[in-house]
């Protein structure tokens, strides 16, 4: 009894250490975002005075709100395109027999490993020439380089897990091919597609290099890039508080996703890589 009790408390300590490791920097940026300018530099781990001032500040200027809209819009559109194209390709990979299948998987892995900086200089020139520099399209296109391979890879891992025998069973049960797809296969594939969408969205949301390289105004600049250009809500204020507040705002949706769908996200992250 006491031995198991000791083991439990050992595990409790370990668990707390791990959780502290994960949350420390997050908590720190949250703490900063709630400090008023006078206590911002006190280095206190918990704000002595809590204030919403920084949040009010960033939402008052279009600099941040515009960037937020850009971030959401660009990430959503990229996700939709990547998941739609990825679903088609992954279905083919998981279900159909055709030559070139392993080539496709190999190619998407290769492209996922592509160093983005290698694409920045040519894309910078190409986009200026064809006039999509500093537009949503100008960011959505390079986002395909990582979102599409990620989608194909994750989705084909998910699709391979679907018991396709059920399609046969449904046919014997009297379903037309369309019914078999709608009533049996689609409900089983949906969670995988949804998880993939979340992963792709997180990747697009996270991008920084393309966002600072291929934009020059607030027309398409996403939040991570915009933060780096923050000057503070007023001319004299240090941008620290604003940056912290903006950082918290773009972190919250990710944390919510992670909390709600952690099981599926873990499955999505690891399924392809391990079973490869």
């Amino acid at each position: 009894m006491s031995a198991t009790g000791r083991r439990r408390s050992q595990w409790a300590v370990i668990n707390i250490l791990v959780i502290a490791y994960a949350l420390f920097p997050v908590w720190w940026i949250i703490a900063l975002s709630f400090k008023d300018p006078s206590t911002l530099t006190d280095g206190n781990f918990i704000p002595t005075e809590w204030t919403w001032e920084n949040y009010r500040g960033i939402f008052q200027t279009s600099e941040f709100t515009r960037a937020l809209i850009n971030s959401i819009g660009i990430a959503l559109i990229s996700t939709v395109i990547a998941v739609v194209l990825g679903t088609m390709a992954a279905y083919a990979v998981a279900r159909l027999r055709f030559p070139g299948k392993s080539l496709l998987i190999g190619m998407s892995l290769l492209i996922a490993m592509f160093p983005p900086i290698s694409l920045v200089s040519p894309l910078f020139n190409i986009e200026r020439i064809i006039g999509i520099f500093d537009t949503w399209t100008g960011l959505i296109i390079p986002y395909m380089t990582f979102s599409l391979p990620l989608a194909i890879y994750t989705l084909s891992a998910f699709f391979r897990e679907i018991p396709w025998d059920l399609e046969k069973a449904a046919k014997v049960d009297g379903a037309t091919p369309a019914q078999a797809f709608r009533l049996v296969i689609a409900p089983l594939a949906a969670p995988g597609v949804f998880t993939t969408a979340i992963l792709v969205f997180i990747f697009c949301w996270n991008d920084f290099l393309f966002a600072i390289s291929l934009t020059s105004t607030s027309a398409a600049r996403t939040v991570p890039a915009a933060i780096a250009f923050f000057t503070g809500s007023s001319q004299f204020a240090q941008p620290t508080g604003s940056i912290a507040a903006a950082a918290v705002v773009i972190t919250i949706p990710i944390i919510v996703f992670v909390l709600l769908f952690q099981r599926r996200i873990v499955a999505g992250l690891t399924s392809g890589a391990v079973k490869g």
Binding site: L23, T251, I254, I255, I265
Partner: peptide, 13 residues
């Protein structure tokens, strides 16, 4: 959470 968080945010922290 560290995995999901935007790198730039963590870097600022």
């Amino acid at each position: 959470i560290p995995y999901g968080i935007v790198t730039v945010v963590a870097a600022y922290s």
